[in-house]
Simulated assay, not measured.
Amino acid sequence: MQRAKRIAFGLVVAVFLASWISPHWPAEQALHSSLTVAGLWWLLRHDRRWPMRASDFALICGFIAAHCIAARWLYSNLPYDAWMQALTGWSPQQAFGWQRNHADRVIHLLFGVCFAPALRQYAQQRWPRLSQRQAFALALMSIMCASLVYEWLEWAIALTMSPQAAEAYNGQQGDMWDAHADMLLATLGALVAWPRRAVAAYPLSAEAA
């Protein structure tokens, strides 16, 4: 593994460990953290077989780090508004009239943004005849399918819990369209990552940086 990737991976592991210092909700955080551990394992395994660009690898590490921070507060309790007020004196909740905590929305958006470039590259590694548009279409569909499966997983886990525990884990905050909004944001995040300029800047024929 190249130095840039080792640094990115080391930082995300450090964030993960720090998120477990005096956890507020250990059981619920452990459920979220199981996905973190699986994601880190997958990242290393995938990169060994299908080397990723350092930038794509770092994006995925950044997403996992953001997930670790949000998972510590079970997403819906992340005090981003208090942090923003302390740093800048500005409250996004008041400015936009938000009635719910939108940390989960940001994480789902980042999922699309951070995974789409790596998935596009992977598609063209596996099937070199694909055009850039075809490879991106596969990446986009992969993001959409993964988001759907994740929402199914959340629903299945919630069925095994009490209503209070299920709400704490899923963080719907009373929004009956929560799953739909999450999937839409992941899709929009992937669309944001469409590599209009990156195609020229990082040709797939070049060695993974």
Rank of each mutant, 00 (worst) to 15 (best):
residue 66 A to V: 13
residue 66 A to K: 04
residue 66 A to S: 14
residue 68 C to G: 10
residue 68 C to R: 07
residue 70 A to Y: 03
residue 72 R to L: 02
residue 73 W to V: 00
residue 75 Y to K: 01
residue 75 Y to F: 15
residue 77 N to C: 11
residue 77 N to A: 15
residue 79 P to N: 01
residue 80 Y to F: 10
residue 80 Y to W: 08
residue 81 D to I: 09
residue 82 A to H: 05
residue 83 W to G: 00
residue 84 M to Q: 02
residue 85 Q to S: 00
residue 85 Q to A: 03
residue 86 A to C: 01
residue 87 L to N: 00
residue 89 G to P: 04
residue 89 G to W: 06
residue 89 G to L: 08
residue 90 W to N: 03
residue 92 P to S: 12
residue 94 Q to H: 12
residue 95 A to V: 08
residue 95 A to K: 06
residue 96 F to A: 15
residue 97 G to R: 04
residue 98 W to P: 03
residue 98 W to K: 07
residue 98 W to I: 09
residue 99 Q to K: 14
residue 99 Q to Y: 08
residue 100 R to Y: 10
residue 103 A to R: 06
residue 104 D to F: 05
residue 104 D to M: 09
residue 105 R to K: 11
residue 105 R to Q: 09
residue 106 V to A: 14
residue 108 H to L: 04
residue 109 L to W: 12
residue 110 L to Q: 01
residue 111 F to M: 13
residue 113 V to A: 00
residue 115 F to H: 12
residue 115 F to S: 05
residue 116 A to F: 11
residue 116 A to G: 07
residue 117 P to R: 09
residue 119 L to A: 12
residue 119 L to Q: 05
residue 121 Q to C: 07
residue 123 A to M: 00
residue 123 A to D: 00
residue 124 Q to V: 02
residue 127 W to H: 06
residue 127 W to K: 00
residue 128 P to R: 08
residue 128 P to Q: 03
residue 129 R to W: 09
residue 131 S to P: 03
residue 131 S to Q: 04
residue 131 S to F: 07
residue 134 Q to N: 01
residue 137 A to N: 03
residue 138 L to V: 08
residue 138 L to Y: 10
residue 146 A to T: 12
residue 147 S to V: 01
residue 148 L to Y: 15
residue 148 L to C: 13
residue 153 L to H: 12
residue 153 L to K: 10
residue 154 E to Q: 14
residue 155 W to F: 15
residue 155 W to C: 07
residue 157 I to Q: 08
